[in-house]
Design a binder for these strands. Structure first.
Lengths: 186, 186
DNA sequence: CCCGGGGCGCGACATTTCGTCGCAGCCGCC
DNA sequence: GGCGGCTGCGACGAAATGTCGCGCCCCGGG
């Protein structure tokens, strides 16, 4: 369906949300990419093999426990030079680190606009991109700090919620609730 | 000053805060590292050349615009296999990404305890998370983390509760209650 | 000297979040 | 199949938080 102009870079978009996916597909298409949109991990790999995209954008949290993290490796196997930007509505430093270590080019918290994604592709995977410090960095809010801490412990326990809850000395139910809540900004 | 037992891995600690630095130096020393503590970037590089540390821990924000980020490259030039953990009281996803891309092993928001740092060294720079030791070194509780963070921000604002509350994005009343409670308890 | 601005401490009360219990569905294992 | 562990989620009282509002200080400028 995307018109494959020779000059257009091919982009793989993976997101299981119909609304977000279609909107983003159009937005990125308008910005000069030949967009291929997949809604599941397996479909994504299939499209990747078929089109050898030079760029990829996907959500960290796909349907049914499929973590987007597990897509990074296979995608790079298919197309070693691919530039991957991962998105998530539940951003945390811990998962950001994992994503970058696995080879993502950038990581963005989810209320995101297409321009930010395009900009993120500019960050080379071994380079120092940061213009650094516009103003004065504020200390993170108590909530955010708690969120980051929880996320770190969670990944340390391989995503096992029960184990993380025990280790944090908090009730599993409470942890679940906290995890279910979305991105806290400041 | 650190007794260089042959078996102890050498660790470079860089932090310009006297209190935090000395406390952390002792804590890491107790955990089996031969700690060398520097308070500036140039001093850090000097110590690094001298001791060839296998591990490094440093604050992102050093005196006067010296960004810890700029230490990563040089340190790796001196000792390519060095494992670096970056700390910061002003954590953000953006700087975390930069740190990892530049070769840090991990990145931690600043109210940290030595155990968390040691655990962070376990995160290999191209590897998945970490298995988490079966032992007891539990991460500090959310409550203590919050408490330390609040204290830090509070002193940063010279004990001004209202200012700290604004900076933490929490209501003054709530901050007051939290402060009052702990004061009595412990 | 008196006023306005800010910070501090605290009571009161509506909201929200947390701590618990409980249940059902899903593996992986023996 | 039975057992144990993990997960998602409803329910409901208990506890923490968000909000308003007051009175009291201290300080610098009219």
């Amino acid at each position: 369906m995307p018109h494959q102009k020779a000059s257009e870079p091919s982009l793989l978009l993976v997101d299981d949300d119909d609304v977000f996916g279609s909107v983003m597909a159009r937005a990125l298409g308008r910005r000069g990419y030949a967009v291929h949109w997949a809604q599941t991990g397996t479909q994504a790999l299939q499209l990747a093999r078929q089109h050898r995209p030079s760029h990829a954008v996907f959500d960290l949290r796909l349907l049914e426990g499929e973590s987007g993290l597990n897509l990074i490796g296979p995608l790079r196997d298919i197309e070693p030079g691919i530039r991957i930007v991962v998105l998530t509505g539940y951003a945390s430093i811990a998962t950001a680190i994992d994503a970058i270590k696995l080879g993502a080019a950038y990581y963005l918290p989810k209320p995101v606009d297409a321009d930010a994604i395009v900009r993120a592709f500019g960050h080379a995977p071994g380079e120092a991109p940061a213009p650094q410090a516009p103003g004065e960095p504020e200390p993170l809010s108590v909530r955010r700090l708690e969120w980051e801490h929880i996320q770190r412990v969670l990944t340390e326990h391989g995503g096992n919620i029960s184990a993380a809850a025990r280790s944090l000395n908090m009730h599993r139910r409470t942890l679940q609730r906290k995890l279910g809540k979305r991105a806290i900004n400041r």
